[in-house]
Amino acid sequence: MHLNTVTAARWVERWECQQQRYAVDREERFTVIADVVEHITLGTPAPLVLDLGSGPGSLAARLTARLPDDAEVLAVDADPLLLELGRAHYGGKSRLRFAEALIGAPGWLDGLGLDRPVDAAVSTTALHYLGAEALRAAYRDLAERLRPGGVLVNGDHIGLTSPRIQSLALELDARHAERHLAAAHEDWQSWWSGAAADPDLAAVLARRGERGHPPCETADLCVRGHVRLLREAGFADVGVVWQFGTSQVLVAVR
């Protein structure tokens, strides 16, 4: 049984609103990530882009709209409900497909059906779920699949090296959230509780079984820690290209 488009649209819209509570300048961050990917893939025939920890495909859909018609965007997540919502809501976009995988697990890229080197891998507000070892493995695996000159672009809340600057950045996050009424949006737990109570989602949730969402191990690395792991994995150049408070877009070039 597949979700109908009306149900999917309702829950994707709630997801979009819920995420406003957590991602500082979320739309601007999406735009910056898309700018990087568009620039890196310019002139590349049939570029292939992975969206890691995609949820229902918020960033993946925006990338599909920005990239040429021959581009393919693959949204990857471990949660069957979020993937099914994305398939039902964005199913009309033939260049966007969805795949289930646990990022950083052994062989996680092997089941994605990749038929050529990856041009860009992106993620937003997702890789913080990984512990240090899973993150190290994910970075290493991605470095092996990205073409030379390809990029990994990660938009997330990333700690700063100096405790004083970190404290100031958190204060900026809080002030930004207050100005933009971020707390008015429902939170993560409320979204999932609501989904669990919706009979229209019962069949998908039953297939989800007892796995639930992957546990949050939280490597809790500062920028320096991410840079170290990325360089160990084989990325040549790593740096922050956008930042507000602790919200950053980190780019690593293969």
Rank of each mutant, 00 (worst) to 15 (best):
M1R: 11
H2M: 12
H2A: 15
N4S: 11
N4I: 09
A8Y: 02
A8K: 05
A9I: 07
W11G: 04
V12L: 12
V12K: 03
W15C: 08
Y22G: 13
Y22M: 07
R26V: 05
F30T: 01
A34G: 07
D35M: 06
V37E: 01
L42H: 13
G43K: 08
T44N: 06
P45C: 15
P45N: 13
L52V: 12
G53R: 02
G53L: 03
S58D: 15
R62M: 10
L63Q: 02
A71Y: 01
V73Q: 01
L74G: 00
A75T: 05
V76E: 01
A78M: 08
P80F: 07
H89R: 14
Y90V: 03
G91S: 12
G91D: 03
E100Q: 15
A101Y: 07
I103D: 00
G107D: 05
L109M: 13
D110T: 15
G111Y: 07
T125V: 14
A126N: 04
A126F: 03
L127Q: 02
Y129N: 08
L130Q: 03
A134P: 03
R136P: 02
A137M: 07
E144V: 09
R147Q: 09
P148Q: 09
P148N: 09
G149V: 11
L152C: 05
L152M: 09
V153L: 03
D156E: 09
H157M: 11
G159C: 09
P163E: 10
Q166R: 14
L170S: 04
E171S: 13
D173I: 08
A177M: 11
E178T: 15
R179L: 13
A182V: 07
Q189G: 13
S190R: 15
W191G: 04
W191M: 14
S193W: 06
A196C: 06
D198H: 07
P199C: 06
P199Q: 08
D200L: 05
L205P: 03
R207I: 08
R208L: 10
G209T: 12
P214D: 09
P215E: 12
L221A: 07
C222P: 03
C222I: 10
V223P: 00
H226K: 04
V227W: 01
R228M: 06
L229A: 06
A236P: 03
G245E: 01
S247E: 14
Q248P: 00
V249P: 00
L250K: 01
V251L: 05
V253C: 10
R254F: 04
